[in-house]
């Protein structure tokens, strides 16, 4: 007899894992929306943020102070990246900018290890991972907390984009860079702000992923989880990042449990990409991505 309770458990687990993917994907979306750059360094920024935070805490800095200090460092990092890497590359083709972020990713990873060492760290953020047992279905407290954080982050960004001047500037630049420049918006300032925002997202994602995996080099590999989310949800939509994350999380878990045994297991890593690629064929801009219309 089919075990529906187990199906629900797998599905819920997948959706909650998907929220974690969304957190990483949001960082990508912010940068892509305003500059058209796929920021490959997002994973490295996440590692840098988590490693900085945990190293400060281990050196005796109080939790709140370490959080503030890391936040300040991430803001500084965002501004530095804009000044030293992006500003000199304004008006260069997207592939040049992409390659720049690829290089940046290695620089940040190297700098993080140079600065804070190569040791693996545990990270406790005060949220227990003992599961709730709801009618035999185990639901992770930590994943629920992460979902709450992701939801709050999306709500904050939505309010920010709608109701603040900087948010409006973001949207204007995202819509049309040249038009934004023509009406007097300062592109470098907007980019610095958006990289700072991506740094803050990296900090939040870094702390949650760090608490889940431990703070170690492989944190930077979580970007691989965000890529199918972006393809599915669209590269320029925060809503897409959330929905895409949920879908990818659920699909990969269901595929692993119910389809995996027919292929010898271990399929979840590529099952997500199969779905993303299939969608790419019928809807290249993703489920929520903006369709590109060009006048010729």
């Amino acid at each position: 007899m089919f075990d529906y309770q187990f199906l629900i458990e797998v599905l819920v687990g997948g959706l909650l894992s998907g929220v974690m993917y969304s957190l990483v994907a949001i960082g990508f979306v912010l940068i892509y929306k305003t500059s058209g750059v796929l920021n490959f360094a997002q994973g490295a920024m996440l590692l840098f943020a988590a490693l900085t935070f945990v190293s400060l805490v281990e050196r005796g800095t109080p939790f709140a102070l370490a959080l503030l200090a890391t936040l300040a460092i991430m803001v500084l990092l965002g501004i530095t990246i804009e000044r030293t890497v992006l500003r000199p590359l304004i008006n260069q083709p997207p592939i040049t900018l992409f390659m720049a972020t690829l290089g940046l990713s290695y620089v940040i990873e190297g700098a993080a290890q140079l600065l804070w060492g190569t040791q693996v760290h545990g990270l406790e953020i005060g949220v227990s991972d003992i599961p709730f047992d709801i009618g035999g279905v185990f639901i992770s407290r930590f994943d629920l907390f992460a979902a709450g954080v992701a939801g709050s982050l999306v709500a904050l960004f939505t309010l920010f984009f709608r109701y603040t001047r900087t948010g409006l500037a973001f949207r204007a630049v995202a819509d049309d860079q040249f038009a934004a420049l023509a009406v007097g918006l300062r592109l470098p300032r907007v980019w610095a702000a958006v990289w700072t925002a991506a740094g803050i997202v990296a900090l939040v994602a870094g702390l949650l992923w760090g608490a889940r995996l431990g703070v170690q080099f492989s944190l930077s590999l979580v970007v691989l989880k965000a890529l199918p989310v972006l393809v599915l949800g669209g590269f320029d939509s925060i809503t897409g990042a959330i929905v895409g994350g949920l879908l990818i999380g659920a699909i990969e878990k269901l595929a692993e449990v119910y389809v995996g045994p027919f292929f010898g297991g271990g399929i979840e890593a590529w099952a997500a990409y199969v779905v993303a690629l299939a969608l790419l064929l019928v809807r290249p801009s993703g489920l929520f991505g903006q369709k590109l219309v060009e006048r010729v």
Partner: peptide, 11 residues
């Protein structure tokens, strides 16, 4: 099997 690197093992 757990696919490399193994940062997700819920299923």
């Amino acid at each position: 099997e757990v696919p490399h690197p193994g940062n997700e093992q819920q299923s």
